[in-house]
């Protein structure tokens, strides 16, 4: 576990100096605070921006940052140095995954400041699940990509689908039907309701299948490419 803690500390120091990754973590929480306080339109649903940006955040930030971090380490050969120092692949991946998950949860905590206290645990629980699935998706892309350029070309379309499909689904029924197969859409429905009441078993199944697929793809990528 010591090596996992070392990786987390390393990432924390590195992220503070890495503007491209740092902006992923703070952009949506800051935008949420600004929009919720600055924009008020008649008939606009309550906490509209919090709910909308939360889903975009869970589909975008963990996925892109995990993929960027892993692919950069591969490209610059620092990952090889860690492996040579007897850091196990699982320790490295756990360190990066836990770090990104915690940082995104901190962001979710900031976004939750506008919510009623009674629903905050529910909201954070839903966000925790969504962020964890996105972390697995990002790790899958990071492990598969030999460098940052490949990672970017892979995570951009994936991130766009997961983070924007739920937003577009609000305006188009057909997109809503298609978006229903993604975990972000199902979690968005839960965040809109802010309650487990009336939750459909199919929604739970969709999230579970997405999570299983993310893990399956991750293990397939790891088996094929390792961390070399």
């Amino acid at each position: 576990m010591r090596n996992v803690a070392v990786i987390i500390r390393k990432q924390l120091k590195d992220t503070l100096k890495n503007k491209t990754v740092l902006i992923q973590f703070i952009m949506f929480p800051v935008m949420t605070l600004i929009m919720e306080n600055a924009i008020s339109v008649p008939d606009m649903p309550e906490l509209f921006f919090t709910k909308l940006f939360s889903v975009m955040y869970m589909g975008m930030a963990p996925l892109t940052s995990v993929a960027s971090i892993i692919s950069e380490e591969k490209e610059k050969n620092t990952l090889r140095v860690l492996m040579m120092a007897n850091v196990k692949p699982w320790e490295y991946l756990a360190g990066v995954g836990i770090y990104v998950w915690m940082l995104c949860m901190a962001g979710a905590g900031i976004m939750a400041t506008g919510l009623p206290a009674s629903v905050i645990p529910f909201y954070l629980g839903v966000m925790a699940v969504g962020i964890a699935i996105s972390v697995a998706m990002g790790a899958c892309i990071g492990v598969f990509s030999p460098n940052q350029m490949v990672a970017t070309s892979l995570f951009m379309p994936v991130m766009m689908v997961f983070s924007f499909a739920p937003m577009l689904a609000m305006f188009n029924d057909k997109i809503e039907k298609v978006a229903g197969i993604f975990y972000t859409q199902q979690l968005k429905i839960l965040i809109n309701q802010m309650s487990f009441d009336g939750i459909k078993p199919s929604a739970v199944l969709t999230v579970a299948v997405n999570a299983a697929l993310a893990l399956l793809l991750f293990f397939a990528a790891f088996r094929k490419k390792g961390l070399e």
């Binding site: 010591r2 070392v6 500390r9 120091k13 590195d14 050969n77 090889r80 140095v81 007897n86 850091v87």
Partner: peptide, 21 residues
Amino acid sequence: DHGVYDRLSCTDNLKIFADIY
């Protein structure tokens, strides 16, 4: 071809490995 962590200082680069070892 082994790399170093570009954004980190020399001390922080070594600190990572000091902690690992």
